[in-house]
Simulated scan of single mutants.
Amino acid sequence: MTKTITFNELRRIKDSLPDGSMHRIADELNVTTQTVRNYFGGSNYSFGKNCGLHIEPGPDGGIVVLDNTQIYDMAIRILEEENKK
Rank of each mutant, 00 (worst) to 15 (best):
V64K: 11
P57Y: 08
S46R: 11
A26L: 00
G62I: 10
V65W: 10
L66G: 00
N30M: 09
N38C: 03
Y45M: 06
G52D: 08
S21A: 12
L29R: 05
N30I: 07
H54C: 13
E28F: 04
V31T: 06
L66E: 00
G61C: 01
I63C: 11
N44G: 04
A26N: 02
G41W: 00
H23K: 15
A26P: 05
H54A: 13
S46T: 04
D27S: 15
L53V: 13
D60T: 02
C51D: 03
I63P: 00
F47Y: 11
G42N: 10
Q34F: 07
C51H: 05
H23D: 15
D19E: 09
T33S: 15
Q34M: 14
N50R: 14
N38M: 04
G61E: 00
D27P: 03
G20V: 02
N50W: 06
G41D: 01
N68Y: 08
L53N: 06
T69H: 04
L53K: 12
L29H: 11
G61A: 02
N30Y: 09
N50L: 04
G20M: 07
T33Q: 14
T33I: 14
N38Y: 01
G52E: 12
G41C: 05
I25L: 06
I71C: 03
G58W: 04
F47E: 11
G52N: 11
Y45F: 13
R24C: 13
I71N: 01
N38G: 03
G62A: 06
Q70R: 15
G42K: 12
Q34K: 14
N68P: 02
N44H: 09
L53T: 10
F40K: 03
D60I: 01
G52M: 12
Q70C: 08
T33A: 14
Q34P: 09
G61T: 00
H23L: 14
V65G: 09
Y39E: 10
D27M: 12
V36H: 01
D19S: 12
H54L: 14
L66T: 05
S21V: 03
P57G: 12
E28H: 01
G48T: 08
N30F: 09
I71E: 01
R24L: 15
P57D: 13
I55R: 13
A26S: 07
E28M: 08
R37S: 14
I25H: 03
D19T: 03
D60L: 10
Q34G: 07
G62W: 07
G42F: 04
Y39K: 12
N68W: 10
V65N: 15
V31S: 09
P59S: 14
G48R: 02
G42W: 05
S43A: 13
H23Q: 15
I55E: 01
G62Y: 03
P57C: 11
V36F: 05
G62L: 08
I55A: 05
A26D: 03
R24T: 15
N38Q: 06
S43V: 09
D60Q: 09
S46Y: 05
Q34Y: 08
D27V: 11
